[in-house]
Design a protein around this nucleic acid. Sequence first.
RNA 1: GGGCUCGUAGAUCAGUGGUAGAUCGCUUCCUUCGCAAGGAAGAGGCCCCGGGUUCAAAUCCCGGCGAGUCCA
Length: 922
Amino acid sequence: MSELESEYRLEYFEENDFVRKECPSCGAHFWTRDHDRETCGEPPCADYSFIDNPGFDEAYTMEEMREAFLSFFEDNDHARIDPYPVAANRWRDDVLLTQASIYDFQPLVTSGETPPPANPLCISQPCIRMQDIDNVGRTGRHTMAFEMMAHHAFNAREEAEGEYAYEGEVYWKNDTVRYCDELFESMGANLDEIVYIEDPWVGGGNAGPAIEVIYKGAELATLVFMSMKQDPEGEYELKDGNRYSPMDTYIVDTGYGLERWTWMSQGTPTVYEAVYPDMIAFLKENAGIEHSEDEEQLIHRAAKLAGHMDIDEADDMDVARDNIADKLDVNVSELTALTRPLEDIYAIADHCRALAYMFGDGIVPSNVGTGYLARMVLRRTKRLVDNVGIDAPLDELVDMQAKRLDYHNRDTIRDIVRTEEAKYRKTLERGSRRIEQLADEHAGTGDPIPTDELLELYDSHGIQPDMVKEIAEERGATVDVPDDFYSLVAARHDSEQAFQDQDETDDRLRELPDTEKLYYEDQQRTEFEAVVLDVFEREEGYDVVLDQTMFYPEGGGQPADRGSLTSEDLTAEVSDVQIRDGIVLHRTDRDPGKGEFVRGQVDVTRRRRLMRHHTATHVVGYAARQVLGDHIRQAGAQKGTTSSRFDITHYERITREQVKEIEHVANEIVMDNHPVKQEWPHRHEAEEKHGFDLYQGGIPPGTNIRLIHVADDVQACGGTHVKRTGDIGCIKILNTEPVQDGIERIVFAAGDAAIDATQRSEDALYDAADVLDVTPQEVPDTAERFFTEWKERGKTIDRLKSELAEARAAAGGDEIDIDGTPVVVQRLDGDTDELRKMANAFVDEGKVAVLGSANGGSATFVVGVPDDVDVNAGELVGQLAQKVGGGGGGPADFAQGGGPDVDELDDALDDAPELLKSVLNA
RNA sequence: GGGCUCGUAGAUCAGUGGUAGAUCGCUUCCUUCGCAAGGAAGAGGCCCCGGGUUCAAAUCCCGGCGAGUCCA
């Protein structure tokens, strides 16, 4: 780290008479104007000194503080940028949630491939961090949801001119620190109390020097100077043990916590009271929490020490609590009783904000991805709400935050919360029953409920061990939750996933120029001429590279075109088309020859069908959004020639009624015959105009992107489309199915494929009608009638068999007497059911029944024995069945068996009296 | 995406290879002025679907469909 020391010797520090010091408590190096300062000033090396003693001239609300920050940087020539969604997986696939403002510009802007929306810029980016979830509410300063205010500058080294999407240096370290100082100054802060701690930053393959900004005990900002990338040959070894080397781009990445700044300006006991005063007041009142003057005092004093309550840093929460109680000279349990409900309330307000962000940005609860995170937060919040005794419905609490955040889809958000809450309630009900059952089993034994059971309850049924303890102990069972419970859960899941290697790039391929894509110029044309630039021999066939092509390569869920390439000498069939780094590869069965002129012919019928389905996909997506709500987003799509599937995010099953409505809306768009337009605007222009909903099928790289307009629907899309919606013909939804929790699949057909599909289902109906000999309209009623009749007949047959069995039994059989016991041995070819009924009938008359049958190619025996006769039916059947090459068994009073040797049946029955005799005598 | 659990009467669930069950609910009757409750009788099951193993599958095996849950 010492290698980085020079990185922090800034001219700005020198000019303003800062001194560099080492904290005697934690060893960190820091810069300060106060030459007498000793510690770094950050908890646990110091306490908060701004509670009840705000660090700024005025108290700001969160909204005011955001505006103050952004306008400060606007006045300093930064462009103000609108925030991005919290669902970062909408533009990158390496993370789920937006955790910092720099996430907005990774990876394309930070790497220099795409220009930033402005340079320099400022933003206030909503973020969600799940890592600190256990600290939320307790430390007074941690939140899961927060806004990271930031200013960024994207610099490129002068040597690298022209290689990146931005050039030269905007500003670097000195200006960044100066801005920070000036911002503090504009708020009326005491500059002598600001501490700049040296704290190198490493993460995500990048690194650089960084400075933590501490004021009155609170970390208010982090200034990161991202300038290095991971490199095994690099000259710097950083704290993660890896080596790093300088990059060509270097980026100012700052983070100013909006909530902390607001808190600092108000000096409330906790950050939560500063940022959600109304909601906290509401929750307190609803939960019936009131404090006396003395209690209020105590809470304030505890808050100043609460910086020590950090699960990561303090070894143990209880120790930290003890510490605080000790310093305040009060009883720990008293303090806990006072602060615990407050901590829950703070967490609820924070969690509700996180949920509002998530659902507001279109995340749908699920068992995977961001949806799962949302579900976890919601369930946790629900537990807290119940715990602290708040009776307001959860959707109302979330709505309070959604309203404050000004989301326009509040009805959907509430609906999602209610649906999800109901699901959780069911899970809890199921869980309670399971626990009660388990508790009753173990209550008498004196042993605690086994840990395995606890693990399964949690892992397979989502039941918290706390809940098991609570319910089970009420029923007199003991529960020991092991301390390492969650690591035991983790142990059940340890399976490594293999990473796929990237296929090596072909050097010869890289030399070739990008293929000119004629299919974008005129999507209706299917014939073209081209020059063969190169031919690669593959295991099966050839990959042909042309200078230009009409063939659409597989992409965006649209399958590749097929067709042929014809030269003077031969015609090669094109069976597949792929694109690699801008070069289109045509897979053919013959080699047309490098340098040849060829005429390309795309399979027209196939292409037309694909185009219809592709445009139809946009239309169906738009219609689904109209019918189901704005949260609908594409979660995957695959176009085909006979049908296409389109996966959408939705929180419940799509009903039949909704399907019909979607179909109507979609076909109206078709009938209105809207033009389908394409354009290639600059990506920033497009984003500004249409927002992130543009990127339904993923984010394309590049400065300009292709937009497809279908009626009011706009999407970034690289596929081929029909000219007007009327060309689709018609759209028929064939099916909907759940792909995973929170994602529904719509299967549909367009154009002639829709007709084909409709005809197929009609055929099925007609065939069914034919079988039933009724009209198609009568099929449902008739089917129901038949099914009911069929069931009734089954019952009738059953009854008749019983009656028949009784009648036969009454008629008596070849009854013999063995040692005073009446025995009937009889062959009667019927099914097992009949034999059983007859055997029962004989037994009712006090007779032993030995019945045999040859039915369906095998021999069957049933033996019934009255209670007062000492014969083991199971054994007897076993012996009889052996004679026909099979086996059998059953309880002592009633048994069945059989075997394949039907011919031996009569002999076996003949032997029955003898066998019986020996069993009786035994 | 991966792991685990579960699909049996209207509901909740027993049933681990040998005659499909319990509780609640439902219907009818009795008791009651009426209700709650009680008593008696009864109806109600393609044991999720399709294969396989077996003399025999609700039960065991494989596949599918559906539900739940945990992890990334």
